[in-house]
């Protein structure tokens, strides 16, 4: 029964909250720019509109092109079932599921990149190349952060890594965890194509990473991609929040409310970061990513010393 309740809250937060994060980010940025900005629920309208629309499909493409959005929506959905949302435990979990979750996100990346190359467009190929190259640098960081947690909690399941077991870790290894939070925040920004790594709202295809890969997707397919991206933001954000807030209030609705609040705060933080930092030149991005990997590595050394 608790399992079902957990699953309910989990899915409700995942499906309901994730588009709102995009809305909060947009509103924060608008506030910084002195504009009124779109309503907070605009992403929901966008999704509803996209799912009602027709599609335009390039003559060049094959089923590979259609498989991209399918994996882009499904993989984050399945992956998020292993990630605890605050104190609401993960509905699924097994020993070593962190490897599975990371490779599941790899599946969505593979399918999106191949779908982009399937259109034959030079711009989309460029975006795909950038996405998979930067992912090479992000994955070690994610693993190092998770290793810090594995070493602290002795668990090999994401559910046990971010749970209350971490509260004790904050007493013994606070510096490592601070570094880990920073690294996870960077990972969240990179993987969700936010400034300073990528700008989803730029008008020039040449400078995009993720957005340029999905130029040719339209209608429901594009809706799936947007929804999947929002879920991925929630998923990685949940890991960051789980690192920073290993507390439980003991009742599911309260915990859900705390988690939702923390996620909204994170979204505001992302909005602030996007407003005050300029976008990095493309060739500087790998340097920053390598630097982040080294930081996460340093967190590990701090823990082992």
């Amino acid at each position: 029964m608790t399992m079902l309740i957990r699953l309910f809250w989990h899915l409700a937060l995942l499906l309901g909250l994730s588009p709102l994060l995009l809305g909060v980010i947009a509103k924060t940025k608008a506030g910084f720019a002195g504009r009124k900005g779109p309503p907070l629920v605009q992403p929901y309208y966008d999704l509803a509109r996209l799912f009602r629309k027709d599609m335009v499909i390039s003559r060049t493409t094959t089923w590979l092109f259609r498989a991209g959005p399918v994996a882009g929506l499904t993989a984050p959905l399945v992956a998020s079932l292993f990630v605890p949302f605050g104190a609401i435990g993960a509905p699924l979990g097994f020993d070593g599921d962190l490897i599975f979750v990371i490779y599941l996100l790899g599946l969505s990346r593979f399918c999106t990149a191949v779908a982009a190359l399937d259109t034959g467009s030079a711009f989309e190929g460029m975006g795909a190349a950038r996405e998979v190259t930067f992912a090479c640098l992000v994955e070690p960081t994610v693993f190092f952060v998770l290793i810090v947690l594995v070493r602290l909690t002795g668990s090999f399941s994401l559910g046990g890594l971010f749970g209350p077991a971490l509260a004790a870790g904050w007493h013994t290894a606070a510096p490592s965890l601070m570094l880990a939070i920073f690294c996870m925040l960077v990972v969240t920004l990179v993987e969700n194509c936010r400034i300073p790594f990528d700008d989803p709202t730029t008008h020039l295809e040449l400078t995009m990473i993720h957005e340029v890969m999905v130029l040719d997707h339209s209608g429901p397919d594009f809706g799936m991609i947007l929804y999947g991206a929002a879920m991925k933001l929630l998923l990685l954000g949940a890991m960051t929040v789980g690192l920073a807030l290993p507390v439980s209030l003991g009742s599911a609705p309260l915990d859900a409310a705390v988690f939702a609040l923390a996620m909204l705060l994170l979204a505001v933080l992302i909005g602030v970061v996007e407003s005050v930092i300029a976008r990095l030149p493309l060739l500087k991005v790998p340097q920053l990513l390598i630097g982040t990997s080294l930081l996460s590595f340093f967190a590990l050394i701090l823990l082992l010393r």
């Binding site: 599609m55 335009v56 499909i57 003559r59 060049t60 493409t61």
Partner: peptide, 8 residues
Amino acid sequence: TPAVPTWG
């Protein structure tokens, strides 16, 4: 579904 060339 209308089929068009890839957007250039």
